[in-house]
Design a protein around this nucleic acid. Structure first.
Lengths: 186, 186
DNA sequence: GTCTATACCTTGATAGAC
DNA sequence: GTCTATCAAGGTATAGAC
């Protein structure tokens, strides 16, 4: 895997999470990288090709995170905290997450991007549901709803909080994360 | 106020909530309306001009809804339900809300749109906080966090659920709304 | 108010030299 | 692998006739 290729993917992801998929261009990437438009097309023939690769890379990163947590024998609370920390970091860097960036543009995306985005979201929700369920079984978490609904609520809070914090110049973001964790303790 | 002007605003709003601000064009509107590109520019000289008018119209609609609920002496539970029903309707029509559509594009919007979007979001959150507070005071609602955080959590759930339901082809949307209402009863 | 016509720009994408 | 050069398409926007 070429270094340039990886840089393009990284830059592309940042652009999606900052300006949105339909607002960024190959020029944004090439000028930042100090190369020309056509060089990007060498690695990614089309924009949808690049977009799909970016989502796939993210899925891979998520898999690695889960695997890493398992190998370290993280308990359910630690795993949830690690996941939430991704969003703390995004907030600090003033970026959205991929689901929150690409979701609103879903209808304008090509089928291959739609499919990968769906795969990623499914995977995250299934993982989170399982985490909540097993945490509840062990008495670490407490909640009334079914795990799938609870997972959806938590993920929604994380996604939309990033978006709202972009609109509202001042927002107590930390309290959102604390609320999520506190809520599961009750 | 001309009828054409109103139709343009309505169509523009639907396009933003379906394709996103950066993905829709004056052609989308003019072809749908059976008029030409230039006719749209007669009413709205620039796209940012149109965008700003769309957000302003939404703020006005929200104000009218609140006023209407007050004149009918809705209690806090009824008001919350009415508000949530907006999102049920959006979901049925496969549209996002304006905050959920424009939030991710915030960095690409002109200052005037940013300002109005911020004004709208502020207004909704302040209203929702007040509603939660006074409902709590009357014993209609029950929750631990401060009203502002709770309002943020609820709004986030509503916004992001619409986005996620677009990604996931099948999603139990009703359960989200029930969860929000149930949660406040405990 | 709506039209035709058009200017001007950016974009995604390709061909072919180096 | 990266470049120059170029293209067609689509976007916003304007001028001026009707």
């Amino acid at each position: 895997m070429s270094v340039t290729r990886e840089k393009i993917i990284e830059l592309g992801e940042n652009l999606i999470r900052t300006k949105g998929y339909n607002a960024f261009s190959y020029q944004d990437i090439s000028s930042e990288l100090g190369i020309k438009n056509a060089a990007i097309h060498y690695y990614f023939p089309s924009k949808e090709n690049l977009g799909t690769s970016i989502v796939r890379t993210n899925i891979q990163r998520f898999d690695e995170m889960v695997e890493n947590m398992h190998s370290r024998s993280f308990d359910e609370a630690q795993q949830l905290e690690t996941f939430i920390r991704i969003y703390t970091k995004s907030h600090r860097e003033q970026k959205l997450c991929l689901m929150g960036s690409l979701g609103p543009d879903f209808n304008t995306l090509n089928p291959s991007m739609q499919q990968e985005l769906q795969r990623m979201t499914d995977k995250i929700l299934i993982w989170l549901s399982g985490l909540l369920q097993s945490g509840k079984d062990k008495g670490i978490f407490s909640f009334k709803q079914d795990p799938a609904s609870k997972a959806l609520m938590i993920l929604s809070s994380l996604i939309a909080s990033l978006q709202l914090s972009r609109i509202l110049n001042k927002m107590d973001y930390k309290s959102i994360h604390q609320s999520i964790i506190e809520d599961l303790k009750s």
